[in-house]
Structure formats: C-alpha cells, structure tokens
C-alpha cells in the first residue's frame, strides 16, 4: 500500500510549529516510516508534485502570497490542518490588526528608528515583484475551509504526534489536557 502523503507550509509564522514537529524526538523515524513528505520546507519541495492526504499549515495570511499558497494547499490536500496559534487566530502577527496598513508600512520603512535616517527618498517598497500586504492578518479558516485545528504556540510535539497518528489511522483525536495549550 502506498504511504500517505503530507505537505507542510509556513505562512505568516515563525517556523516554530515546524520545529515542534521535528521535536517529536526519535518518533520522527517512525513518522518517516509512516508517511511521505511532498511540498514542504522540510524537504524543500517547492511545488505540489501530487495530491496529498494531509496538509499542515503554520501561520496565518498576512500577504497575498500566503493566500495563494493556502489556496494551493486546499486544492491539493484532502485534509487541511491549521497548526498553531498563528494559523488559528493570526497569532503575534495579528497584533497589527488594529493598526492601518499605511501606518505599519510607514513605521517599518520611513519612521522606525532603524530606517529613519537611511530611506532618503522616503520610498515605501513598491516593486511589482513584492507580495502585497493584506489589510489585516487572517486566520487560515477565514480564507479557506480548514478541517482540523491544533492549538499551541507552538503546539506541543506530543500533541502533534498524537493528532497526526490519529489522522493517519482514522482514529478520533485524543488530546491530553497537559499538552492542549494556547501558549
């Protein structure tokens, strides 16, 4: 039988959730036995080569590019999972949600102490190649349909392991209290 295929992505996240996935210790060997990885920063596959069973998304959407990647994942993954607080509710990046985009950009490129004296022409980066900032950070499920949510910042490695094995074996997820946390 063919092994189930997993894809992962980090959108507006810090890679902490990916780190946590690698933090399952020696069980990582079991995992590699159990599944194949497709598009993922873990193996650096950049385009979907095939349809996947499970997509793990870290981070919310803060750029148009995040939206495109997320939609791509939705189109290629049977089950899509929001992993971590950023994917679930925007996380720290979403702390900008009460501030206008213009203000954010101006602070980052014009007024912030580290740029104030260097951006002589007072330019907000506007190259057509650059991704565009969204008006706010969106949790993944406010953009596409998400099937499961694994909380934590990052989610505990044990939580990820249990959730993954449950999904792979078509079992109900049993997430123990000690590892079910938002921080």
């Amino acid at each position: 039988m063919e092994k189930p295929v997993i894809a992962t992505a980090s959108l507006a996240g810090c890679f902490g959730c990916h780190m946590s996935l690698l933090d399952i210790d020696e069980r990582i060997l079991d995992l590699i036995e159990l599944v194949d990885f497709n598009k993922s920063p873990i193996n650096d596959i950049k385009e979907f080569a095939r349809e996947c069973d499970i997509g793990l998304i870290e981070g919310g959407c803060c750029l148009d590019e995040n939206v495109h990647v997320l939609k791509d994942f939705r189109n290629h993954c049977r089950i899509l999972v929001s992993v971590g607080e950023c994917a679930i509710m925007g996380g720290l990046p979403a702390m900008r949600n009460g501030i206008s985009v213009r203000e954010c950009l101006e602070e980052a490129y014009l007024n912030g102490p580290s740029v104030r004296n260097y951006n002589e022409n007072k330019i907000l980066p506007n190259d057509e190649e650059l991704p565009v900032l969204l008006n706010r950070v969106y949790p993944c499920h406010e953009v596409v349909k998400i099937d499961y949510f694994l909380p934590g910042c990052p989610p505990d490695a044990d939580l990820l392991w249990r959730a993954l094995t449950a999904l792979l074996n078509n079992r109900k997820m049993d997430l123990p209290y000690e590892v079910f946390k938002f921080d």
Binding site: E85, M89, G91, L92, A94, M95, N97, G98, C153, F182, D183
Partner: peptide, 8 residues
C-alpha cells in the same frame, strides 16, 4: 476581544 495567549 484580542486574546493573544502566547504573549499574555
């Protein structure tokens, strides 16, 4: 509200 538990 805005509940950013990780930094609370």
């Amino acid at each position: 509200g805005n509940h950013f538990c990780p930094s609370c």
